[in-house]
């Protein structure tokens, strides 16, 4: 127990916690959306994220950046970031949709038991991870440093870097956008209707399959954005990075209340904070344990999560 470390660096730990939590939250949204509509833990979502990290890498390589290239000026940088975002979101969404069409839809048509869905999800996850693993020879890939870190301002003695502002900013924009889309648009109403009662929604003329597809697309886009932010923040990717991050993101989704969009954001940020505080208190090597311990404790006392509200019950 190192309380000096925790309280001495409290502001810094908080800021890095929020930064990491933002990425968890973006990935957690994918789990929450699919769970809210299908009651399915989409294990393959971690690989949807992983595909996004590679898509970003390849986009930047295509644009002529490698690990040694100097940081670009503002104009080309903006182009690189936006191109990366678009390609990563598209690649992740495409992966998610493929998994849905190839693996889950045939099962729904056969009214398979829930266990079959879970097992298929794990199978899909491993197929994706392994095909990238074999394709990339299981090597880690470094990212070009597009944005050199610099401290913008300090809060309570903790420096806030431009990267952290970028990550938090993009996460908040994506989050508000998704929230508004689900709660206000016509398609969003369809999602909420299917989440509430799939059969009744179908009777009311909602095309259920299209809604489910849309849910996978939305989750994929969020994971793709999260993937780009991961690349910017951690500067590397590997075929199996999705695994641990996916577990944590799922823990974050359950923490906030699975099936609840705002809960995913809250859960992600809380998990990021808890991890960093635990790292300060017990030492960095215990960081990865925090999520699971938190998850098990939470499941014992409040299994519906902190906000505990399902996607279907969100108000219009």
């Amino acid at each position: 127990m190192n309380f000096d470390e925790l309280f001495g660096n409290f502001p810094t730990l908080t800021i890095t916690g929020l930064e990491q939590g933002a990425i968890y939250a973006l990935v957690a949204l994918g789990y929450t959306l699919v769970y809210g509509v299908l009651r399915l833990i989409n294990f393959a979502h971690s690989e949807v994220f992983m595909v996004g990290t590679f898509a970003t890498l390849w986009t930047w390589q295509f644009l002529g950046y490698d690990q040694n290239s100097a940081a670009p000026a503002f104009g080309p940088l903006l182009v690189a970031i936006i191109a990366g975002l678009l390609v990563a979101a598209a690649a992740s969404a495409l992966t998610a949709v493929t998994v849905e069409l190839v693996a889950y839809r045939p099962l729904r048509r056969r009214n398979a038991p829930p266990l079959a869905f879970l097992i298929t999800a794990i199978g899909a996850s491993f197929v994706l991870a392994e095909s990238f693993g074999i394709g990339t020879e299981r090597a880690p890939f470094g990212m070009p440093t597009l944005i050199p870190q610099e401290t913008l301002f300090t809060v309570f003695g903790a420096g806030v870097t431009n990267l952290q502002m970028l990550i938090l900013g993009i996460t908040l924009v994506m989050m508000v956008g998704l929230d508004q889309f689900v709660n206000r648009s016509r398609l969003g109403r369809g999602i909420r209707a299917v989440a509430q009662d799939a059969d009744t929604a179908a009777l009311m003329g909602v095309n259920k399959n299209r809604v489910i597809l849309l849910v996978f697309v939305l989750g994929g886009i969020m994971a793709g954005v999260g993937a780009l932010l991961w690349d910017v923040r951690y500067g590397f990717t590997k075929f199996n990075i999705g695994f641990l991050l996916g577990l944590k993101a799922f823990a974050a989704a359950v923490l906030g209340g699975i099936g609840n969009l705002r809960g995913a954001l809250l859960g992600g940020l809380l998990l990021g904070l808890a991890e960093n505080y635990a790292a300060g208190l017990f030492g960095g090597e215990w960081k990865d344990f925090t999520g699971f311990v938190l998850l098990i404790v939470l499941l014992m006392f409040r299994p519906t999560g902190l906000l505990g509200e399902s996607l279907g019950r969100a108000r219009a």
Binding site: A116, T120, S125
Partner: peptide, 20 residues
């Protein structure tokens, strides 16, 4: 052994659809 996980992943998906 290099492709073991990939192959079993695929087999599991196909199996769940056609012979659960």
């Amino acid at each position: 052994s290099e492709y073991r996980i990939l192959i079993f992943g695929l087999v599991v998906i196909v199996m769940m659809i056609f012979r659960p």
